[in-house]
Design a protein around this nucleic acid. Structure first.
Length: 269
DNA sequence: ATACCGACCTGTCAGC
DNA sequence: TGCTGACAGGTCGGTA
């Protein structure tokens, strides 16, 4: 479900709510899919650990843990399409598809819920830096270099987490719309000017979406249960058949890299 | 190396 | 009303 702006919003909300709290005990479901680390490792790492802070890396939520001795460990959560991390009181009814419950010293619970089970939970030594470059930090030069070496459609390159991490289907379409570049163009066919526009468009759309609390297309909510509002600013994603905000031409929907892809056939070259 | 496609899961919605 | 199929914000592994 969530891409960079949603994960950023969730991680910031979790940081506000649970940083400094201690995990007293953990329950893990017996469904194996969401676990990248063995359940016993996850429990052993989380139990007794204090949450130092929560931050976003790519589309991952990273909990820095202070176990008290030895090198720090991290709990890394990828929400997949439908994952949620909720902070609740114990009395709140446990949702269907709850896969992990961490009981906190404050008396609250941190719960991981994921109906589709595409999300992943993992514990590891500190220092996780994600699979690719960070879109909010990368300069235009490095950005251009990433795409220069790829013959893939530029949309596929944007979605490739080993190049840039954090960009998903919505913001790839939105960035390409703002850069006026067609999603099927080969990444290495973009001119320097187009790469600059793509870099700028991506930064603009990600920052605006973070400011709006992310996009709530169906059921996304942040750590406080609040919806995001960026979906009302979408110009391409989800607007098939609707008039382009620039030229009124109907937005087209095609499939690129196996994903529904929206663009303006007139504005985007 | 690259790119397409199915697989992984469940829920929802449109269409019949 | 109920069934079927398509589709969904993500990623991985196999194959051509």
């Amino acid at each position: 479900m969530p891409e960079l702006p949603e994960v950023e919003t969730i991680a910031n909300g979790l940081n506000r709510r649970v940083a400094g709290d201690r995990i007293e005990s953990v329950w893990v479901s017996d469904k194996p899919e969401p676990l990248k680390s063995p359940a016993a490792d996850i429990s052993a790492t989380l139990e007794g650990a204090q949450v130092e802070r929560v931050q976003r890396v790519g589309k991952h939520i990273v909990f820095d843990l202070a176990p008290g001795r030895g090198p720090g460990r991290q709990w890394i959560v990828h929400l997949g399409m439908t994952g949620k991390l909720l902070v609740t009181v114990p009395e709140t009814e446990t949702e269907k598809h709850t896969h992990l419950v961490a009981r906190l010293a404050s008396g609250r619970e941190l719960r991981f819920v994921d109906p589709r089970r595409f999300g992943r939970l993992e514990v590891r030594q500190s220092g996780f830096s994600g699979p690719g470059a960070e879109p909010l930090k990368i300069g235009v030069q490095e950005f251009a270099r990433l795409f220069h070496g790829s013959k893939a459609p530029v949309k596929a390159a944007l979605l490739n987490q080993k190049l840039l991490h954090g960009v998903g289907n919505i913001y790839a379409d939105e960035a390409l719309f703002r850069a006026r570049v067609r999603p099927r163009r080969r990444a290495n066919s973009l001119s320097q000017a187009e790469l600059r526009k793509l870099h700028a468009g991506l930064l603009r759309v990600l920052k605006a979406a973070i400011a709006a609390g992310g996009s709530s297309v169906s059921d996304y909510v942040d750590a406080d249960g609040e919806e995001g509002f960026f979906q009302i600013q979408h110009r391409a994603y989800g607007r098939e058949g609707k008039p382009c905000v620039t030229c009124k031409t109907p937005i087209k929907k095609i499939v690129v890299a196996g994903r529904g892809t929206h663009y303006c056939p007139k504005c985007q070259k």
